[in-house]
């Protein structure tokens, strides 16, 4: 019997995009309710043991308390810094404990942080963030059921697919990564993190260019769609001498974005950009580049594995997992 990892990011869904865009506040009571539903589904799917990140807000701990007579739950040894470091350290601990699948609650940034600690983690990401390209909007009860089927060994084949990622090598500093996009902006500070100034965008590399999503990925998606399954990415150069795309760069916020170049980029083909500027990963400014400092971006299919919930449930129906 495998175990299910649980991580809910208390900080997701609360940044400045509630002001500059029309994103919703995702309060932690709602996240707790989502964890409850996911665990309900997981238990129905056959899971009995959970390993969880005991976040400072008690989201997962309090949700799991309700199931004390049905499951065993163990908190991982992780930091309580109130920052992305907590998610990274929890991911490392879950990797050590070999979780069969990890349910994450957050947005693109949460899953990126998780993958900094466990790059090829088996993930079932539930969207509670701002930009939610990587995590899927789905009912937690059913997502939890899929995780339960996997952890109990009832569903084993063909439900995971490995995702692309961008490895970011920054000259003289630690490496970083992104799951959806890396954007270089002329802004000089990480500040409030959100990408507030499209006129400062310089270039971007997308793992997928999704016309049906919000965020930087939509800019490429409305010009040259690339799916998660395609073995290539898209390199965008922003500038006045090309197409102008009216794109939703955040929830409820469209901007006219001028693009001077748009080129597909093959896997494992490094591309460089240099400072000064700020690198944003998956929609949030994260790292600053000094004058002349070079960042090398490499797209590869070495990211996390994500669960196809519908496929898992179809398999469960075929083998009668839920027949009493």
């Amino acid at each position: 019997m495998g175990t299910i990892g649980l991580l809910a990011n208390p900080a997701s869904g609360k940044d400045v995009r509630r002001l500059v865009a029309r994103a919703s506040v995702f309060d932690n009571q709602e996240k707790r309710a989502i964890v409850r539903r996911a665990v309900t589904g997981a238990v129905a799917g056959g899971a009995t043991h959970f390993i969880y990140h005991n976040d400072a807000h008690g989201i997962t701990q309090q949700a799991l308390d309700e199931f004390a007579d049905q499951i065993t739950a163990t908190a991982v040894d992780s930091t309580q810094m109130g920052s992305a470091l907590d998610t990274i350290s929890a991911a490392r601990a879950m990797r050590e404990l070999d979780c069969s699948v990890v349910i994450t609650l957050g947005g693109d940034g949460t899953n990126r942080a998780f993958c900094l600690g466990w790059p090829d983690a088996p993930l079932l990401p539930i969207s509670t963030g701002t930009n939610n390209v990587f995590p899927v909007l789905q009912e937690a009860t059913i997502a939890g059921a899929a995780a339960g089927l996997i952890a109990s060994g009832q569903v084993t084949e063909g439900v995971f697919s490995q995702q692309k990622r961008i490895l970011v090598n920054i000259e003289g500093e630690r490496d970083d990564l992104a799951l959806i996009d890396v954007l270089l902006s002329n802004e000089r500070f990480v500040g409030a993190r959100a990408l507030l100034k499209p006129n400062q965008f310089r270039s971007a590399l997308l793992t997928r260019a999704d016309p049906a999503a919000v965020g930087i990925t939509s800019i490429g998606g409305l010009l040259h769609p690339i799916d998660a399954a395609d073995d290539c990415g898209l390199w965008l150069t922003f500038g006045e001498d090309g197409d102008v795309i009216h794109a939703p760069i955040a929830p409820g916020l469209y901007h006219k974005i001028p693009i001077s170049a748009c080129e597909p980029l093959a896997l494992e083909q490094p591309i460089c950009c240099s400072g000064p500027g700020t690198l944003a990963f998956d929609g949030e400014r994260e790292r600053t580049l000094k004058e002349g400092q070079v960042a090398t971006l490499t797209l590869s299919r070495s990211g996390p594995y994500i669960v196809d919930v519908a496929s898992a449930l179809r398999q469960a129906a075929d083998i009668g997992s839920f027949k009493i």
């Binding site: 609360k14 509630r18 309060d27 932690n28 807000h57 500070f189 500040g191 409030a192």
Partner: peptide, 25 residues
Amino acid sequence: IVDVADRAPGYGMPGVIVDGMDVMA
């Protein structure tokens, strides 16, 4: 609660959290 900003939607206003140790944020 840990995030006071969680109360904002209850009043009908946006609530935002920033790193208060970062003057630019």
